[in-house]
Write a protein that binds this DNA or RNA. Structure first.
Lengths: 224, 224
DNA sequence: CCAAAAGTGTTACAAGTACACCCATGA
DNA sequence: TCATGGGTGTACTTGTAACACTTTTGG
């Protein structure tokens, strides 16, 4: 049962990274510079190295290909159908990541196999390489689930944010409107927000109040 | 970017399979017949083959080592820390499986690397090989989650079952008592059960009624 | 003073929880 | 007739959903 007795598959990490910009839910894609699927859009990712843990690999690939560092990262699912990659057996450990929309400017690194890195609105996507469409659909389910049962929405927001901003996130993710009174009541009941005495300025209507997460809440977002 | 340019890790599938027997939650372990961790108890599993999909690999390993065919199987998580296996880089795609307690007699296959296969109560476990304790703890979380948000509990039961049986499952999984009136009300509200006109016999108290899942419900257990 | 979006409170309905007595059976 | 666990209904509490008017600001 020595490890050498077995033929080994290639193992890659691929990342679905979401942000929200201009009131749209977006994901970051790269344009492939190599075969197969050259010039197709695909999820950022690449082969894992033998001396790095899986999460580190996902972070590195994302950083190398797109210059982006996620605020939140978790493993999504492992796809490994025999024929998902025309080059041979490639198992893809996929990741689900989120980034603050203010910090989401991709910077392409020319040294990688990616020709281009670009945010695409989820409603206006190109054809994707490999089985990446399936992966994305899985990631979208996870995103909705996380919004419903955890406080992960805050990772899309800057330190200080308003209720209208937060509500907008939920409205985008679930593609429906939420009543602002009920929404506020529900969030406040979680008892994780702290009012600041600052307001948004330069809006030609009643300016919304800024809130922030209470101290020590940021780390327990998963637990709600 | 040819696949050959990358060193490849070994990839295994390991399975946490649960059953309920004698009012105890149990998992199936094998006693390792080879190094490393020879004579230690471990999750059943083994290296994936190049021509089989991941789920098939998990099913095959389970069958080969323990003779058991799961009623329910889903991917759990992929563990791949650099040093989780002393032999070298081994990534483990883990599975979560359930089996009807009436069909859960393991039959050891002598041709494998397992010396023995045995059900262990979750409250009375031996030391486990590798990082299998961590994997098990993850599987337990998933089990509770599935019980809470899906109708997966029925996979532990035979075709016809009683409310007391079903309630017992929940009490075992959550280690707490449920009020029998409220429990019944909640399950009936799901509208997935059909009363039969049969009862349990040979009990020295009022015999409980047998129920079964409505037609076409078995397949949508995930959706509740 | 107008336009725009923020902020606020009450009522109705549904879901969940707590709780105690009678029933059917085998021994 | 007794012991055992099964079966049932009601009141209370909590959470969710529906809904309309006043407030603050910049232009």
């Amino acid at each position: 049962m020595a490890l050498e007795d077995y033929e080994r598959p290639s193992v890659a990490a691929d990342i679905v990274i979401f942000t929200i910009k201009n009131e749209k839910l977006k994901i970051l894609l790269i344009k492939r510079g190599v075969e197969p699927f050259i010039d197709s859009w695909a999820l950022p990712g690449g082969f894992i190295k033998m001396d790095e843990d899986l999460d580190d690999s996902a972070k590195r690939e994302l950083k190398e290909e797109t210059g982006v560092t996620p605020k939140y990262l978790e493993q999504l699912y492992t796809f490994g159908d025999v024929k998902r990659d025309p080059r041979g057996r490639v198992i893809s450990i996929t990741y689900f990541a989120l980034i603050d929309y203010e910090k989401s400017q991709p910077k392409l690194n020319a040294k990688t196999d990616a020709k281009e890195a670009k945010w695409f609105s989820i409603n206006d996507l190109p054809e994707l390489a490999f089985d990446h469409k399936k992966i994305l659909s899985y990631a979208l389910k996870r995103l909705k689930w996380k919004f419903e049962y955890t406080a992960i929405a805050f990772t899309f927001l800057p330190e200080k944010f308003t209720f209208p901003q937060l509500r907008m996130l939920y409205e985008i993710v679930f593609s429906k409107k939420f009543d602002k009174r009920n929404f506020r009541k529900k969030i406040l009941a979680l008892n994780i927000l702290q009012e600041t005495n600052e307001k948004i300025t330069k809006v030609s209507y009643r300016p919304p109040q800024l809130y922030k997460l209470k101290e020590n809440i940021s780390e327990i977002i998963e637990l709600i």
